[in-house]
């Protein structure tokens, strides 16, 4: 059977969440297994949120932040980027492939990029297979 990964996409409400809305409104369709979690700023996202997502059974976690220099809160996106880097290293040591955590810069207008990224991202998580957390009992 074809494997459908569970993916959480943390989206900054100022950029990627709007891009996702536009992508929705254009009715182009993107994988329905991607659950969008709205954040006030990517700088709010904590390591524990990402770990919890994996614990709850996510096969992949995507984090979308505003482009550098366009964070409405100045450096929230840069902060998120550093935190993701740190978390990816942690995941690898825990035994979860770091490729399951992906970080993207996106602006509110780049809804086509949003579609490309989630479609490609979905494929790459698919090719990784189910999360090791879920496979073993």
């Amino acid at each position: 059977m074809d494997f459908t990964p569970a993916i959480v996409a943390f989206c900054c409400e100022n950029s990627a969440y709007r891009a996702a809305d536009t992508a929705g409104a254009r009715q182009e369709g993107y994988p329905s297994n991607i659950s969008i979690c709205r954040l006030p700023c990517s700088g709010k996202l904590e390591v524990i949120h990402i770990l919890k997502a994996f614990e709850e059974g996510a096969d992949g976690v995507f984090v979308f932040a505003c482009h550098p220099d366009s964070c409405r809160f100045l450096l929230g996106n840069v902060r998120a980027g550093k935190r993701i880097e740190h978390t990816a290293a942690l995941l690898e040591k825990i035994g979860i492939e770091k490729e399951r955590l992906r970080f993207f810069y996106l602006s509110e207008l780049e809804w086509t990029q949003f579609l490309d990224l989630v479609r490609q991202g979905n494929e790459s998580i698919k090719s990784l297979g189910p999360s090791p957390i879920k496979v073993k009992p």
Partner: peptide, 21 residues
């Protein structure tokens, strides 16, 4: 408290990734 939560969660995940509970 923040680091405790991260470590606890990490250990749970690490165990499960190794097929343990």
């Amino acid at each position: 408290a923040k680091e405790v939560a991260i470590l606890a969660c990490s250990l749970r995940l690490a165990a499960r990734a190794r097929g343990k509970k």
